[in-house]
């Protein structure tokens, strides 16, 4: 499952679809919205994507991770639109025979998403003003 959606993320569902009879480990990462951007206070973030390209880019990263780390299943969901503090903006779940590959693949996937996937965010300040985080 690789999705970009406006709805809140269902991490239980994500983990369920990662379960695999050959797996001895599932590692799940959630990126969550925190209330500070640098020294500035924020109330939420607004995410925007170039959706078709972003989905293709996430697929390519996942394919690469599966080959590189030999993991069994990978699921990724990224949220777009308004995401409030403490909510998840992205969730990644990886299953593998042994834990090490799952940890490494999960880290590789989130690092690659941050570098290569066309998604951007705006900080929403307490006064309601929103500013691109460039």
């Amino acid at each position: 499952m690789i999705r970009i959606q406006e709805e809140p993320l269902d991490v239980e569902e994500l983990i369920r679809s990662t379960r695999n009879a050959e797996a001895g480990a599932i590692v799940t990462f959630q990126g969550t919205v925190r209330k500070h951007s640098g020294s500035m206070e924020v109330t939420s973030l607004i995410y925007e994507s170039y959706k078709e390209m972003a989905l293709n880019a996430i697929h390519a990263i996942v394919d690469e991770a599966m080959v590189r780390y030999g993991v069994l299943d990978v699921n990724v969901v990224h949220r777009i639109g308004l995401v409030n503090i403490k909510e998840d903006s992205v969730a990644i779940s990886v299953s593998s025979a042994h834990r090490r590959e799952a940890f490494e693949a999960c880290e590789y996937i989130i690092d690659s998403i941050k570098k290569k996937v066309p998604i951007w965010k705006k900080d929403v300040k307490p006064d309601g003003e929103a500013e691109w985080r460039d």
Binding site: Y47, Y50, M53, S89, K114, P118, I119, W120, R133
Partner: peptide
């Protein structure tokens, strides 16, 4: 052709 700033997802 798409033009955009450095990506900042996650």
């Amino acid at each position: 052709l798409a033009l955009f700033p450095v990506v900042s997802g996650g």
